[in-house]
Design a protein around this nucleic acid. Structure first.
Lengths: 321, 321
DNA sequence: TTATATTAGGTAACCAGCTACGTAATAGGT
DNA sequence: ACCTATTACGTAGCTGGTTACCTAATATAA
């Protein structure tokens, strides 16, 4: 039994907690008997709250015990039938159903309170015996989950693992289609293909690689998920200058930081090549891209007019100071 | 919200555990999406087990994942409909339904395993952030509950509390009926009233108290729940001797240790009175009583014949050595 | 052998939650 | 004053589990 837990490890934490909770709850059924509290287990929280509050509305009880109001409505109906509670419409607001305990309900309630005190005591003893304060532990865990939900934590974990598998490879002939595909995808999505585009996209080898440029591809497991190019520029200043261009990342891995790592990789390559200044053109519509460039240290400049219509921002990064 | 927890304290541990578990589980639904595992959350354990086992029977899976076999049967049916599993009758034993994953099922399974690894990682991180190892804590608690169930713990706690309220009071006239009632109850239950009984039961004052004897009553809250008497004996040896007799405890508090505490009280009283030797007669049918006397140090002896038919064992306790 | 017990697992009915929705009463804006 | 939004809460129906019960196959004892 419970083979599943041992195998799936802490991933089954949720199931395990629920199960332990259920076990404790089911242990509570015979104890109710012991205290001569003749109630349905599920009435427990409502009865308990009514002992504290004297009178309460259905919605109020639902809020207090953390269940839906139909559940409470149902429970109150049953308890009333069993003679433990009675309901009256509130005078001030006739929508409100006020629930109060009958004499019999109060008797049960008193026994229940006694039982709760004993249970608290017993739980305390259990913690002492096991030398663990599970209650405090849950408080800490819940506080931590309030800060960052488990869902978000999973996302971070996944990304971290995946990013470890990310590799950068230089251009090879077999990647030609990937280069075209990745770039056409984003251009078509945000703008439309310009005549200037086809120059580089249709012939990366002749237009970039053979001219002393560099193209890198980001590979995740077997998939090519991103690309970026360094294109030599004819410099007027005597500095070694290259253009960072054709940056593209597949839609379904966007937001994982592939773009940033890819761009960083390109900067590293540029440094190795002895490039003094990196230049790029982009569009302010592409906010995440601009953000990414800024993060890498690119500064906006007013440069020469671009051959691309969509370019409305130009940036540079000086690599040698 | 959650007013109930803060009020009822650790008594609501069960509910709280269950709730936290459910919260974590519900957080897992969107993560399934993230990993492109297109399964119903409840299929998770079955799919996971099948990844480990290649093939498994319905009963086996039920055992492994800790759910009932109809649940598994249902899940397998749904999974088969979704094309994730296929079922065949075992050749050796045609009652057995062997469940295996299809190609599609295996694909999902692989992604799920990946997800489980990430989840395990994320849970580990959560524990690190909260600085609590909840997993280890649960292990300790479960181990402790295996030793002593929560139900039993509640019983002990209840008894301890109740025993604190236990008081011993000496005979007063208003207790006369209690003395008769308590004694007649057990005599009638195990034996039948003998003529000798009425002597003491009908006239405790004349037969016991006024002759220098002593009667004590055990009171729990307002209820008289037990009684016991010390009756002077005519000694041949010159020692001060008394008979411990008329020990009776109400049925509905039996097993709580009232009898033991009462007898212990009588021994204390005897010591105060300067009694050298306590003597008693009983019947071996009354095993708990005999056990109790032995625990107090009484030893079996062969004494004079008893006026009571039901007496088939005699014991003594020497108080002065 | 043959009768009986046990086992695998399917179906049915139930249960305790939930969400969705409807109705009546109240609150609020114009 | 009147229309709209909100609130309280009841009913209906869904879901994911359960237990109870059934049949068929196998194991066991007379």
């Amino acid at each position: 039994m419970k083979e599943f837990y041992t195998l799936s490890g802490r991933a089954a934490l949720g199931t395990r907690l629920r199960r332990l909770g259920e076990q404790l709850a089911s242990d509570a059924v015979p104890t109710l008997d012991m205290y001569k509290v003749e109630i349905d287990l599920k009435w427990f929280p409502v009865l308990y709250m009514l002992m504290q509050k004297k009178t309460a509305a259905v919605m109020e009880l639902a809020e207090d015990i953390g269940q839906s109001h139909p559940a409470v409505s149902q429970i109150v109906k049953e308890m009333t039938k069993a003679g433990l509670t009675q309901t009256t419409r509130a005078k001030l607001d006739k929508r409100i159903t006020e629930v109060t305990l009958t004499r019999k309900g109060k008797t049960m309630g008193r026994r229940l309170e006694q039982q709760c005190q004993d249970a608290d005591q017993a739980v305390g003893q259990l913690f002492a015996d096991a030398n663990v304060d599970l209650w405090a532990a849950i408080n800490l865990i819940e506080a931590e989950l309030d800060k960052t939900s488990f869902f978000k934590r999973m996302k971070v974990t996944k990304r971290e693992r995946e990013m470890q598998a990310l590799q950068f490879v230089p251009y090879q002939h077999q990647y030609k289609n990937d280069f075209t595909r990745l770039n056409e995808a984003w251009i078509k999505k945000y703008f439309k293909l310009e005549p200037e585009d086809s120059k580089a996209l249709d012939n990366p080898e002749g237009y970039i690689v053979e001219k002393g440029g560099y193209i890198a591809f980001a590979q995740l497991d077997q998939d090519v998920v991103g690309t970026c190019a360094l294109i030599p520029m004819t410099s007027k200043t005597g500095l070694v200058e290259m253009e960072l261009a054709k940056m593209a990342v597949t839609e379904n891995v966007q937001g994982l930081g592939v773009g940033f790592l890819l761009a960083q990789h390109m900067v590293d390559v540029a440094k190795q090549k002895g490039v003094d200044r990196l230049y790029l053109e982009s569009n302010t519509k592409l906010a995440p891209a601009i953000h990414l460039y800024k993060k890498l240290g690119f500064k906006q400049i007013m440069g020469d007019p671009s051959p691309y219509q969509r370019a409305n921002i130009q940036m540079e990064l000086l690599l040698t100071v």
